[in-house]
Design a protein around this nucleic acid. Structure first.
Length: 425
DNA sequence: TCTGGGGTCCTAGGACCC
DNA sequence: TCTGGGGTCCTAGGACCC
């Protein structure tokens, strides 16, 4: 049997690097990108990491470091990052017959059948190609399983001497490196499992590799057993080329400021439902269960309120108007005027393909209805024009005073004619 | 003043049934 | 005193990932 070879390509500090592509002055400077609502740090350039700015740290706790070291701060710009991701993935798709887009900044490539001699050079050429096409630096780890490729990638990223590419293929080599990897840094081993493993004397990835199968199955799970086998070089997780339909869709956001009135909450719920319904129609599904939640600020410590409510939708639908109506009814049931609200969200669940939906005795099905045609027209228009809002439901509001804070947002350089990069000479 | 968002899968436990 | 056993299905919550 032919040996399997996986490459994991991972963009370095992806969001921060995207900002850098369009602003060369950021080169070698500390850069951080914030979560929605400018809340936490979700990406850091190496320089920012070196300053001790932690991943996930609330920005107000780093204010001092940021001022002192002139850290460049950006609000998240997912339109830009999404488009840059698409460019990276398009480049990678040219480098292998089989790949899996694993996340916005990561992809697994199958390099089965490659001869050992040319492998390293080929992988290096992929790295160069991505950089030339997009301006983004990536690290690439190569190994006989996905889990080991993740580890090889980590080594490529941490050890400058690797030049961003690391192959982990020889058994002896693998064992040597696994001993240097904390067990909690193994893909699939999270915080809780790490504690459990360390209590039983398994501290590094090598310890996990040689652990007893029965013990792992009993104390962790069948999923972790696959992880262990993968560390042994037995591939259990294949490349998943097909992107399966989502089973649930969520849109949840914190507000830019506290919200008190039912009217404002209704606007927000309408806007979130609208966004979620768009994702729903993107995969040609209808939704059979809608859930809405609100909560006050959990960090205030006192007077916390959180509640949710859901409703079955019959027949299932993807019509924004109907979903908003249902969302508003749910909201009215859980709204309490004596609280102020910091966050709200909607979940679409019980999703199914629109074409096979079940009929309902009293109401017209969504599929092939006039409402479906209306939504298709709106979606097509918004996709093409995508300028300044497009078509939206009046219920979403226009001013949207509750909208999240994005004080440091860069332009959508790659997707908007009016936000193209300008260069002065 | 200021603390993200969006997913999947697994498991434990309750309800229910025979 | 002594009070079965096993199966399925559903749900909520946990754990993990990026």
């Amino acid at each position: 049997m032919e040996n399997k070879i996986f490459a994991l390509v991972d963009c370095n500090n992806f969001f921060a690097s995207c900002e850098r592509v369009f602003n060369p002055a950021l080169k070698n400077k500390p850069v951080v990108v914030l979560s929605n609502n400018d809340g936490c740090v979700i990406a850091r350039s190496n320089e920012a990491k070196a300053l001790g700015i932690e991943m996930g740290a609330p920005i107000f706790k780093c204010q001092d470091l940021i001022r002192r070291h002139h850290v460049h701060v950006y609000s998240s710009n997912f339109v830009l990052y999404g488009d840059m991701s698409r460019r990276v993935m398009n480049t990678l798709a040219q480098c292998t017959p089989q790949m899996e887009v694993y996340s916005i900044d990561e992809a697994f490539l199958s390099l089965d059948g490659f001869k050992q001699e040319g492998l390293f050079d080929y992988v290096r050429s992929i790295r160069v190609k991505v950089y030339l096409n997009t301006g983004l630096p990536v690290s690439i780890g190569v190994a006989p399983t996905k889990t080991l490729a993740k580890i090889a990638n980590r080594i490529a990223k941490k050890q400058a001497s690797t030049g961003g590419v690391f192959c982990l293929t020889e058994e002896e080599d693998i064992n040597h490196w696994l001993k240097t990897i904390d067990v909690g840094d193994v893909w699939g081993i999270g915080h809780e499992k790490t504690k459990d493993l360390k209590r039983h004397g398994i501290d590094n990835a090598y310890g996990l590799k040689v652990a007893d199968d029965e013990w792992i199955k009993k104390h962790l799970s069948i999923v972790s057993l696959k992880t262990v086998w993968e560390l042994r070089g037995i591939s259990c997780l294949p490349i998943e080329e097909m992107v399966p339909d989502k089973k649930s869709i969520a849109t949840t956001r914190s507000f830019g400021r506290e919200v008190q009135t039912l009217d404002e909450l209704k606007e927000a719920i309408a806007a979130y439902v609208s966004k979620a319904a768009e994702k729903l129609r993107d995969q040609a599904s209808v939704c059979g269960y809608l859930q809405v939640f609100v909560n006050s600020n959990p960090f205030k410590g006192q007077n916390y309120y959180s509640n949710s409510a859901g409703v079955l939708l019959s027949p299932p639908t993807a019509y924004t108007g109907k979903l908003i109506e249902a969302g508003h009814r749910l909201l009215e049931g859980i709204y309490r005027p004596e609280f102020s609200y910091k966050k709200a969200g909607v979940f679409l669940m019980n999703l199914q393909p629109e074409a096979v939906e079940q009929g309902d005795l009293f109401e017209e099905a969504y599929h092939n209805s006039r409402r479906q045609r209306l939504m298709r027209t709106v979606d097509a228009y918004n996709r093409r024009l995508a300028n300044h809002g497009g078509i939206f439901m009046a219920a979403e509001g226009i001013i949207q005073p509750w909208y999240m804070n994005q004080t440091h947002k860069s332009k959508r350089f790659t997707t908007r004619w009016d936000e193209l990069l300008e260069i002065s000479i």
